[in-house]
Design a protein around this nucleic acid. Structure first.
Length: 423
DNA sequence: TCTGGGGTCCTAGGACCC
DNA sequence: TCTGGGGTCCTAGGACCC
């Protein structure tokens, strides 16, 4: 017996969050803007009805906003984070197995629940009563099907916010009506490819031969097909995974044409990235700096530069990150004249994150001629990261135990005579 | 010295998601 | 003039090593 998986998501979450504190926002068109107030990232149903699209730039909808008195908000992520936590607290009264998928979506495991649908209806009523946010719930044997049920419930008021698609006959009836592009994991590109093969609905995708799915898409599409067939390929992850990377990126108000201006921006981003690392109690093992021109202006020369460097030792220190960013930016800077390109976006990405207290101190504090200790230290590091730490030895080496920082996996060079005897 | 196979590591970029 | 930010996963291809 497969366990039923539910996904609950909040309707127009940011707008719903704003409405909790301002009842005059109910029943009127409301939008919430992206970070730089650039475009609409959340719209109330009324705003959607006006034809305002997801991600649409504000400057393109000015007329609509003024003509219909659309209420416009800058985003307030602190508030949304708080509301999100409270919603999860309500979920916890309904199941102990919760996977927080995003700020407004949770997967909930409903195994052992006698009547999942009425359970979901109770949950929905509780969230509305206690937090004031409307949610929709989809239930199915796999995550992809649950997302699909959720999508159907979202679009058809007849389901009153809850759809249990566990029943095969019901799925057989509904899936032919779902456009394949609405399936979780099918984006624009895959949608196009599938259309060429005459696959236009969820039901048709479900019937796609698995080998063909692999060939057309990748292992990702293969999994989607299997999930639609009711075979779970995406695990339920109720423990929050250690995050693998983080980024600080921004669009620039005025285009940057010379290196100093770009480096100034990258310095600011690297500084924020270091703060963010420390706030999360993490250190990073590698840093990427990137910048590119405005992709919306294809009439202008395009360039995108990006370099990655290792941080050895791993660090959350502002100086280290800025220095690494400078190295990367220099290496990626175009050879052309300085004013050839106008860069409008730049950012810092950090990868290979570990908790500060787990940072590999021993690796960089190499005992000079205590090879046994060194080997133990290397073993510990290898165990922790699942990576190989290489030691390259030759008689030509002048100094013992030099750390080479120019590789993704740390390496040491040393004299042959410094190597321990291996039995 | 030359050649080739097999493996790993790394970069860059694509695709998708919220 | 004005077009978000922060993530994950996957693949191709090159460099390099044995």
């Amino acid at each position: 017996m497969k366990r039923p998986i539910a996904i609950s998501d909040s309707a127009n979450f940011y707008v719903s969050a704003e409405r909790i504190f301002d009842p005059t926002l109910r029943g009127v068109p409301v939008i919430v803007l992206s970070n730089n107030d650039g475009c609409a990232v959340a719209r109330s149903d009324e705003a959607k009805a006006l034809g305002i699209k997801m991600g649409e730039p504000l400057h393109l909808i000015r007329d609509k906003v003024e003509a219909h008195g659309v209420r416009v908000f800058s985003s307030n992520y602190t508030l949304y984070g708080d509301i999100s936590r409270r919603v999860v607290e309500v979920y916890e009264d309904f199941t102990p197995d919760i996977e927080i998928y995003s700020i407004d979506e949770c997967f909930l495991c409903f195994s052992g629940v006698a009547n999942p649908e009425s359970h979901a209806r109770n949950l929905r009523a509780a969230v509305l009563r206690r937090i004031g946010v409307p949610v929709r719930v989809g239930i199915a044997p796999t995550k992809t099907l649950a997302k699909c049920a959720n999508e159907i419930a979202k679009k058809n008021p007849i389901f009153a916010g809850v759809l249990d698609m566990t029943d095969d006959a019901l799925a057989d009836w509904l899936l032919p009506k779902v456009p394949v592009g609405d399936i979780w994991g099918i984006g624009k590109q895959t949608d196009k490819k599938l259309a060429k093969l005459g696959i236009r609905t969820a039901a048709e995708l479900r019937a796609m031969p698995i080998r063909q799915a692999r060939a057309v898409g990748t292992v990702v599409l293969e999994r989607t097909v299997l999930e639609l067939q009711g075979e779970p390929c995406l695990a339920f992850e109720d423990v929050e995974p250690q995050r693998k990377g983080m980024a600080v990126t921004r669009s620039a108000g005025t285009p940057m044409t010379d290196f100093d201006t770009l480096f100034q921006a990258l310095t600011a981003h690297a500084t924020r990235a270091a703060e963010k690392l420390r706030r999360h109690g993490l250190v990073a093992g590698s840093l990427t700096a990137f910048f590119h021109t405005n992709r919306h202006r294809q009439d202008r020369p395009q360039y995108s530069g990006s370099r990655t460097t290792r941080l050895t030792p791993m660090s959350s220190d502002t100086f280290d990150l800025v220095e690494a960013a400078r190295r990367c930016a220099k290496a990626a800077w175009p050879k052309a004249r300085d004013d050839t390109f106008a860069f409008t976006k730049a950012g810092i990405m950090l990868d290979d994150l570990v908790r500060f207290e787990d940072r590999p101190r021993t690796l960089f504090d190499v005992p000079r001629s205590k090879s046994a200790e060194l080997m133990t230290a290397l073993d510990q590091v290898n165990d922790r990261f699942g990576k190989k730490t290489m030691v390259l030895a030759s008689e030509g080496m002048k100094r013992p135990w030099q750390l080479r920082a120019d590789h993704r996996s740390p390496r040491y060079t040393t004299r042959l005579s410094d190597l321990p005897v291996v039995r």
